[in-house]
Design a protein around this nucleic acid. Structure first.
Lengths: 210, 210
DNA sequence: GAAAAATTTGATCATTTGGTAAAGGTTACA
DNA sequence: TGTAACCTTTACCAAATGATCAAATTTTTC
């Protein structure tokens, strides 16, 4: 290979770590708003405050950056669901899940939007991950079904229950502009997340009480 | 003006109506999946089965097509909410609203995704419409607040109630791939929408009962 | 059925975009 | 402090993209 690319030889240097982090952060900014096809390397490079060839020294292609981001994302995105324990109190477990998902929407809105973008275009690159996701969801749906049989949770379709939690929480990241445009300007801080948590906990507790 | 562009002189012809419809339909296909920046005129022209210059005879620019689609969308998108009547039974009104929104997610998923794409990129072109939206939502929130005062609806934040209805229903259009990947293959038809309706009506009725 | 209007096409253009080449500058480490 | 590995930049390229033009063809109108 004529020119050594970053990270292809031996260990990662300090500069490599710093720049790769900067690139990924900038790329998350750009991809999460414009999607893969709508984002340009120039845009990302500008956001990372470096030249395009310099950026391409660290990542061979635009796709390589995107792939890495998506991979990192899916790795942590489902942690809150994984934490749902069969031996906890059903309504508390569901409330904790809602709270954790809302915190993610508040603290990692870019990741949420990146994911939403991927879904909107039909999840072309993550067939394997969707399959893993199904396994996890099916497992947790089984736990919920048990809770229902034990009379600790209202009978309902557990898959749709999970969908409704995803939808209501991610909404605050993906549709943030809309939420901000509609709520009173006074709620511009993070107050809307606390209001949302209060509302959603009440809705789901009352709605799912056996 | 050297060359007459479609619809610039006198009335719209039969061909104009047909082709413009074909273009808008194709553009909705493309924009709803790839977003504005991620879509190309070539792509839309191919989907509409015509040449690029031919397409550009009917719409001057890519943006003109997009603007028209967004305008049409917002015009009808809020109809279900407008139909919510202050003098109806609160829980029935809310259930009808959910059902209508679910029907839109089922019958017009492309429109839902087009809207979602716009929101994800920060709704750059629809500031005015967002303002109109706020007026409508505030009005309906007022109705809900009245219902709560009359003891006909559980006390909660009406804005977040509306958000939760939007989120849960639009989810079935915007995240359709995910929904399909997770549900049993048997639900591949429109059955998932009926299941969703059953689940959501129960959740909201029980959750919002006074 | 001819004139006028509308439509379609093929060639073309300037810009943007993803990506490369090669040369010069910097860093780490012996 | 020298040098090998690593990093950065300037210049560049081919393809894609948004858009235009003049000429050719079709449709409508009288």
């Amino acid at each position: 290979m004529a020119r050594p690319r970053a990270a292809e030889t031996r260990k990662r240097t300090r500069i490599q770590r710093e720049k790769e982090d900067r690139i990924l952060d900038a790329a998350l900014d750009v991809f999460s708003v414009h999607g893969f096809r709508g984002s340009t390397i120039d845009q990302i490079a500008r956001a990372a405050d470096m030249s395009k060839p310099n950026l391409l020294y660290y990542f061979r292609t635009k796709e390589a950056i995107h792939r890495l981001l998506i991979g990192q994302l899916l790795d942590t995105w489902l942690d809150p669901l994984r934490e749902m324990q069969a031996d906890g109190d059903p309504l508390s477990e569901i409330c904790s899940y809602i709270r954790r998902k809302l915190e993610m929407a508040r603290d990692y809105p870019r990741e949420s939007r990146l994911f939403a973008n991927e879904m909107l275009r039909g999840a072309p690159h993550i067939q394997q991950e969707m399959s893993d996701l199904k396994s996890l969801v099916d497992e947790k749906a089984g736990i919920m079904r048990k809770w229902m049989q034990d009379g600790k949770l209202a009978r309902c379709d557990p898959h749709h229950l999970i969908f409704s939690i995803w939808a209501t929480t991610q909404h605050y990241a993906d549709f943030d502009v809309q939420v901000l445009a509609i709520l009173d300007p006074g709620k511009a801080g993070d107050g809307r997340f606390e209001d949302a948590a209060r509302y959603l906990e009440k809705l789901f507790i009352e709605g799912l009480k056996p």
